[in-house]
Simulated assay, not measured.
Amino acid sequence: MPNIASNLKFLRKTKRLTQQQFADLMEIKRASVGAYEEDRAEPKYELLKKIAEFYDLSMDELANDEINEKWKRAPKSNASNLRVLSVTVDGLDRENIELVPVKASAGYMNGYADPEYVATLPKFSLPMFNQGTYRAFEIKGDSMRPLASGSIVVAEYVENWNDIKPGQTYIVVSKDEGVVYKRIAFKFKEDKGLKLVSDNKSYDPYWVEASDIMEVWKAKAFISTTLPEPSNEPSMETLTSMMAEMQKTINSVVDKG
């Protein structure tokens, strides 16, 4: 986060707050404020969000803009990140949900924008997803447990990347990583890319540069043939029975005494 340290210091001073006063407002230690302003540490996502809200800024502005006396909020424009997508429709002119199996992922990287290629993908429809543009992706691996490998994620196309929300899960199609299903931890402005994290903490987070990203889809549902395993935790009925047995044992010991 290239400008976060200087931005935090400048913004705090414009509010005429000491480091201790700001720390109290954010419910953190004063030493942490000093570390952030001196670029010795970076605030976590939730704290960064809280700071941005306090200063009435977006997280992108707080982390990426160089905020000083000359800084002005940039006008919002969606023109630079609108994207065109190839889709197929059924006999009633309703958009299909195309399925991208794992074995087709490599081909999808080359043909995702080609209407002829997209037309060759398996297609289906779901009644709850009849408004918008959706695609289904088969995922592999255990990086997003408890979602099992082989599950199919149904996702909605994100036309404007400004609509991406940190903390939520997406299908990200990129040149280097291919098709991945990840949680977005943080986003900079479009030219800076996305930070992707796995729900399985055995996997390290990583950044994907915006120039490498081809498509982004917001996860809406999943389909899996792997049913949940029965819980190992005792049921309420079992706990009640165990308590009754324990009470009987205690009563028996008391009676003998």
Rank of each mutant, 00 (worst) to 15 (best):
L62C: 09
V118Y: 05
Q21L: 02
K201H: 08
Q21I: 13
V173C: 06
V253R: 07
G178P: 07
D90R: 09
L17F: 14
T238A: 09
S143E: 09
A63T: 08
F222Y: 11
V153S: 03
R30E: 04
V173W: 08
K220C: 14
P230Q: 06
V84G: 13
S151C: 04
I152K: 03
A41W: 01
M1R: 13
A63N: 06
Y108N: 06
T249D: 12
F222N: 09
N110K: 11
R16F: 10
G193W: 10
N200M: 05
F10D: 02
E46M: 10
L99D: 10
K189D: 13
L99H: 14
V158Y: 01
E237A: 15
T18R: 04
P166H: 08
V33Y: 00
G107E: 05
N3L: 07
D176V: 01
T18G: 07
E190R: 06
S86C: 06
N251T: 02
I152R: 05
F186A: 05
T14P: 00
A219L: 05
D255V: 15
E215Y: 07
Y55Q: 07
T18Y: 10
T169Q: 07
M128N: 07
A5N: 11
E116M: 15
Y181A: 03
S80D: 14
G178K: 11
F22H: 03
K218Q: 14
V179H: 03
V153I: 12
Y157D: 09
S174D: 08
S32T: 15
